[in-house]
Design a protein around this nucleic acid. Structure first.
Length: 296
DNA sequence: AACCGTGCCAACCGCCCGGAC
DNA sequence: GGTCCGGGCGGTTGGCACGGT
């Protein structure tokens, strides 16, 4: 069966756009606006697929597109947003004026990923050794506490995952299911924060890859503490993300620990000290509401 | 000069979603 | 509820540029 192609590939030009074609497309859109992409090429007199026209317009010809190299600020924003959103390039692009999802995606794949990979390798070694059971006993109290906390968090998320399967989304309120937030805000979380504060230890735990694995079906809110030292994270799982086979949280935990997950492109960020620190530093415009919207 | 490897990026492809009917 | 259509999204590819040998 299969889906009908978006356009008849016969008699349709492909490949690089010529300046003449660009001009025709720009002229047409200036006069008539865009939309109805499928019929646009016919009306504009272009031998192109409608999809190709849309892509050309959105990624290249649009007047508000900013060309040229990425600024350090843009770079930082991309890393921060990628830590939270994963490979949701359109969502990331929506927060960076003048940049397209395609451009950001290319920039990530060709520049940032490699850079983060370097620090990821160091960080993963460090973090895995912290969580190694045999090491948990021998490390400092704060390190041990970190491992225990992480373990508890993983467990809570696993339970959350189980319950999300049992409960209908309609019956789940944010407050009911947000174990992690409650634990974090409880004495347990408080003692964890104090422990790290007293020891002068910077928590280098990666932001939960488990939480963000469910990015497509979860809402995420973050609040920074007054001194920027405390961050509370609230994750509400409502459904499985698209393109994702059902998989338990514990399975993700195992994947994460063993590094066996093949979809590792955006996970590099989670284990990267750089991106983690940038994530904690993320101020944006103090409006994280867009994350809620992205939950779908 | 010719060849090769690598990086970059525009463009393509297939899948998915939401709305209209 | 099922189907069709328009459009968006993320992953991948192909071609060009450039540097090294």
């Amino acid at each position: 069966m299969g889906r009908k192609p978006c356009c008849d590939k016969h008699g349709v030009k492909r490949g690089a756009w010529t300046p003449e074609e660009d001009e025709i497309l720009i002229d047409y859109i200036k006069k008539n606006g865009h939309g109805r992409w499928r019929s646009l090429p016919k009306h504009a007199g272009l031998l192109r697929c409608g999809k190709s026209c849309r892509l050309r317009w959105t990624n290249y010809l649009r007047p508000d597109i900013k060309r040229g190299p990425f600024t350090p600020e843009e770079e930082t924003t991309i890393i921060q947003l990628h830590s939270m959103l994963g490979n949701r390039w359109a969502a990331i692009a929506s927060k960076i004026p003048g940049r397209t999802d395609n451009e950001i995606k290319n920039f990530w794949n060709t520049h940032l990923k490699k850079r983060l990979l370097g620090s990821h390798q160091n960080q993963q070694t460090q973090w895995c050794s912290v969580l190694e059971p045999s090491n948990v006993q021998s490390k400092s109290p704060s390190t041990r506490h970190m491992a225990q906390w992480e373990s508890a968090r993983v467990e809570a998320e696993a339970r959350l995952s189980m319950e999300s399967l049992l409960l209908s989304p309609a019956s789940m309120s944010k407050n009911d299911c947000d174990y992690f937030l409650r634990i974090w805000n409880s004495e347990v979380g408080d003692s964890f924060r104090k422990m790290n504060g007293q020891d002068g230890v910077t928590c280098q735990s990666p932001i939960s890859p488990l939480s963000t694995k469910f990015r497509s079906g979860s809402s995420l809110t973050m609040q920074r503490g007054p001194a920027g030292t405390s961050t509370s994270t609230s994750t509400t799982i409502t459904s499985k993300p698209k393109n994702m086979e059902p998989k338990s949280h514990t399975a993700y935990a195992q994947d994460t620990m063993t590094g066996s997950d093949s979809s590792s492109s955006y996970e590099l960020g989670y284990f990267s000290d750089i991106s983690f620190r940038l994530l904690l530093d993320f101020q944006g415009d103090n409006d994280m509401g867009f994350l809620q919207g992205l939950a779908g």
